[in-house]
Design a protein around this nucleic acid. Sequence first.
DNA 1: AAATACTAATGACAATTGTCATTCTAATTA
DNA 2: TAATTAGAATGACAATTGTCATTAGTATTT
Lengths: 200, 200
Amino acid sequence: MIRVLIAEDQGMLRGALGSLLDFEEDIEIVGEASNGKDALDMILKLQPDICLLDIEMPFMSGLEVAEEVKRRNISCKIIILTTFGRPGYFEQAVKVGVQGYMLKDGSIEELAESIRSVMKGKREFAPELIFGSIQEDNPLTKREQTVLSLASQGKTSKEISSELYLSHGTIRNYMSEIIDKLGVKNRTEAVTVAKENGWI
Amino acid sequence: MIRVLIAEDQGMLRGALGSLLDFEEDIEIVGEASNGKDALDMILKLQPDICLLDIEMPFMSGLEVAEEVKRRNISCKIIILTTFGRPGYFEQAVKVGVQGYMLKDGSIEELAESIRSVMKGKREFAPELIFGSIQEDNPLTKREQTVLSLASQGKTSKEISSELYLSHGTIRNYMSEIIDKLGVKNRTEAVTVAKENGWI
DNA sequence: AAATACTAATGACAATTGTCATTCTAATTA
DNA sequence: TAATTAGAATGACAATTGTCATTAGTATTT
């Protein structure tokens, strides 16, 4: 029997996932969490074999939970279950060392198969992510990402410059370059586009 | 037997919803669509009693499908099924004349109950929407939301003004008011904050 | 009937933003 | 080795942005 914990903030999917996975005769749902903090608590208390983690959840993201589980050297295996193959998320998840990364586009049967596979010690990643069809890579350099990310918080070029110990003009050059690279009109649209693509 | 069509673009939820609703002995799933266009085609072809419609779908939104169904005077009843906190949608759905508006936060049992209730001729709206009133905590007026939403697409004040047939100065006044209301520094941060809160 | 909120407008001002040309260094790649 | 890329800077220019004071019509509340 594979003991599974589900962490997903959308009630309907959480419930449905719970019911349907529980129908599988080799899988047992030991708990359901609706946010990251509860998920971490329940992992510690219930010691499940596998935890399914959504990324965007209140209080603590799935990636933060995964990081904490790995940091504390807990044996629970982690499968990230998320809507989008945001390249940033996927990269981070791999870096943290999760055992699986699946998309909510697949079927529950596929998910059950992945759970069994991970239980056997394998790693399971959604093929869409590996063969990079979604993975449009980030056209922005590290520096540009930093600058745009600060701009998204409403910081002016001058404020960004003093925060990064760079000149005012440099920041404006970077911003101009960012706008050009993303093919947008101004910093506001740049933030929108970069966020949609998971580039910042 | 209540004949139900499901239109939902997220594969996992669509499949789960299909399986679990089909378990109910008085409900029959006659079809599943993954986008708005397919949903409309299937409504015409299969003539279900009730159609569950997600809002954010490719090609045609659930609200557009609902509008078309009502416009053509098709007898199929519509239940909108969507994620919490997206402003404007609820109002628009009521205006179109849908029979139900439920949140993906609830359970499948609740959804099944709503389907039965709608089948009997009642209208079912998620209580969170009626009481909790999502629009209430949105500090922005209709006009301000429109302006900020256009700004988030990178439009300049001048472009927004000509799109809304207002003067350039008026848009800048609105933007100034928006920035003040949200307690932010500029339009870029205003977009970030408003999006995080689901206000635009 | 009076007060309030929303919509809309004008003009003026200072600050911020975006663009361009041009230069320089360090690191990487062909 | 030569070429390219990332990072950093300067100065100048025009356009855009944000603020403020002030006015006004229309609805809705009190």
